[in-house]
Amino acid sequence: MTQSDELRKQVERQVRRMKKAERERPTLLGQTVYIGTLGLLLVLPVVAGAYLGQWLDSLASEYSSRWTVSLILVGVMIGAINVYLFIRE
């Protein structure tokens, strides 16, 4: 096998790899869905914590926001962990 045959095979292999990479490139819609999923993974625990905390605070006889603030912070931590685990996959 000559050097020109070896070079031709290497170039053909690189062309196949480049075409495969071009086909598998993420689309705008795919990237938008990915970012939207990350947003929901972060926001939903925060909102759920706020609503649950508000409900628990409404059960108290005097004005209190202790549960609301605490559960919002817990929601932020859970949301951050969700996003981290989703990105790590």
Rank of each mutant, 00 (worst) to 15 (best):
T2Q: 11
T2N: 15
T2C: 14
Q3N: 15
D5R: 11
D5W: 09
L7T: 08
R8L: 12
R8I: 11
R8Q: 14
Q10I: 05
Q10M: 12
E12F: 04
R16K: 14
R16I: 07
R16L: 10
M18S: 08
M18H: 10
K19F: 06
K19I: 07
K19P: 02
K20M: 08
R23G: 00
R23Y: 10
E24A: 10
R25V: 03
R25A: 11
L29V: 12
G36E: 14
T37R: 13
G39R: 06
L42H: 06
L42D: 03
V43A: 14
V47P: 03
V47S: 09
A48W: 15
G49Q: 02
Y51C: 05
L52G: 11
G53I: 06
G53S: 05
G53M: 05
G53A: 05
Q54N: 11
W55P: 00
S58N: 12
S61A: 10
S61M: 06
S64N: 08
S65Q: 09
T68W: 04
T68P: 05
T68H: 06
S70A: 13
L73W: 10
G75C: 05
V76M: 10
M77G: 05
M77H: 00
M77T: 08
I78R: 01
I78Y: 03
G79S: 08
A80V: 06
A80P: 00
A80H: 01
V83G: 01
L85W: 08
L85S: 06
I87P: 00
R88C: 00
